[in-house]
Write a protein that binds this DNA or RNA. Structure first.
Ligand SMILES: [Zn+2]
Ligand SMILES: [Zn+2]
Ligand SMILES: [Zn+2]
Ligand SMILES: [Zn+2]
Lengths: 156, 156
DNA sequence: CGGGCAACGTTACATTGTAACGCTGCTGCG
DNA sequence: CGCAGCAGCGTTACAATGTAACGTTGCCCG
């Protein structure tokens, strides 16, 4: 049940709905709590395929939760990232919903400077190439991040 | 003339000296100016194999240049990065001297959470794997960043 | 010899991220 | 039941990182 490329039009409401349902299932299975607050933050992050900054999330969150403050958001984002439900896009200090939540995987993104969208690619071969490169340097890899920026098919 | 792994002891003074000389040569060849200020910033970044934050650089710079302010540092860093003399480590908002200055290449790092050092690996196969992954998604890659964090050989 | 530009100075501010402590409501146990 | 302990969240204040905007200086070239 893999996600279609974000650059092709699709029913994004379904993206969001499925991501939330999936997150709920995962959290239940793990015995951790996807509280309403966390769910709202996850939903906000998922609203688009463009990475959302913490303060962008905060602005949105405050529309339904006036008391929200930066720590509120950062805690929720930290939880969601720890559970593998979102990824942090390091080159943008921003967050994006994970398309393969539940399956441990490295973070690989194609970030379009034209439309701003970021597409997660879960490329096994790339992942393997990274593992090899790390091994070659006798480095114990724990977290692997790939961020490729450029132009997506539609923006070329 | 490749750099030894940073995790093995080496004459780091030589690292710095060579990096500066090389930078001068490159800038001369390109007709751009490695001004004293830029040279000082480059030297500061090169002082260790741990990525240096902009404000860390600022603190050091102020020891010899009291008037320095954030824009001073950011401009120099921007110049140095544009000329490929340093890399920005996105996951740390920090900068590190490039070991292959002059040769265009993607940014690939092994970042040790034990000692804080970051080692640049100029891995051709990894670079190729990224290119393939991007092509597969019909994405025009312009900038490729790989940041692998974990433990280096000495910290394991 | 002066117009134009790159580099740098300077001020002020914007954005992003955290420390620290308190409150509350649930949960598990005597 | 009654309450200790803890996760989650509220709240305040601040730290760290990054930039806009404009002024000044000195060099190069016409
Ligand atoms: Zn979608
Ligand atoms: Zn993912
Ligand atoms: Zn060295
Ligand atoms: Zn490099």
């Amino acid at each position: 049940m893999s996600h279609p490329p974000v650059s092709v039009p699709h029913d994004h409401g379904a993206c969001v709905h499925e991501a939330l349902a999936r997150a709920q299932t995962i959290c239940d299975a793990r015995g951790v709590k996807l509280t309403p607050l966390r769910g709202q933050v996850l939903e906000i992050v998922w609203r688009s395929h463009k990475p959302a900054g913490a303060y962008e999330v905060l602005d949105e969150l405050q529309k339904v939760h006036k008391a929200a403050r930066p720590p509120t958001v950062y805690r929720a984002l930290e939880f969601l990232e720890a559970e593998g439900l979102i990824h942090r896009i390091e080159s943008q200090n921003a967050y994006l919903g994970c398309i393969e939540a539940g399956a441990p995987h490295s973070s690989q993104f194609l970030i379009c400077r034209g439309c701003g969208a970021a597409e997660e690619i879960a490329d096994r071969e790339l992942d393997a190439a990274i593992a090899v490169a790390a091994k070659r340097a006798r480095f114990k890899a724990e977290r692997k991040t790939v961020e490729i920026s450029g132009l997506c098919a539609r923006c070329t």
